[in-house]
Computed example of a mutant assay.
Amino acid sequence: MFILALTYVKPNEEADKLMEPHMAWVKEGYARGWFLASGRKVPRTGGVVLAIGNRAEIEAYVAADPFAVHGVAEYDITEVAVTTVAAGLELLKS
């Protein structure tokens, strides 16, 4: 599993201008079966996506996020070898 943590490096107003294409990118990540959960950080300094899949494909997909392409946000990708989960979340196990 991967934790995709994005941090805004430009003001939120810049992120707002790209929110529609960014959300289309997020929805496509779900459609591909890679994204499991996502949302904004509180306070709003970026966001987090929980993802599964091949690391190289995930990294390439992250690089195509409009936020990354336009320099609005930077990503930190952390791989987690999940070994224990609550009932119903077995998909997360490595």
Rank of each mutant, 00 (worst) to 15 (best):
I3E: 01
L4A: 14
L4E: 12
A5I: 14
A5V: 14
L6P: 00
T7S: 11
T7R: 11
Y8D: 09
Y8I: 03
Y8L: 13
V9P: 03
V9Y: 01
V9Q: 11
K10W: 03
N12A: 14
N12F: 12
A15W: 02
A15L: 06
D16F: 10
K17G: 07
H22A: 02
M23F: 04
A24Q: 15
A24W: 00
A24V: 12
W25H: 14
K27D: 15
E28T: 12
G29S: 08
G29L: 04
Y30Q: 09
F35K: 07
A37M: 10
A37P: 03
A37D: 06
S38N: 13
K41G: 02
K41Y: 00
K41N: 07
V42A: 12
P43V: 06
T45Y: 00
I52F: 01
G53T: 04
N54I: 10
N54F: 01
R55F: 01
A56E: 15
E57F: 06
I58L: 12
E59V: 08
Y61G: 09
V62Q: 05
V62W: 05
A63F: 00
D65T: 01
D65A: 05
P66E: 04
F67L: 14
V69H: 01
E74G: 11
Y75E: 05
Y75W: 08
D76I: 12
I77G: 02
V80H: 02
V82M: 09
V82N: 06
T84L: 14
V85A: 11
V85N: 02
A86S: 12
A86Q: 08
L89N: 15
E90Q: 11
E90H: 06
E90I: 04
L92Y: 06
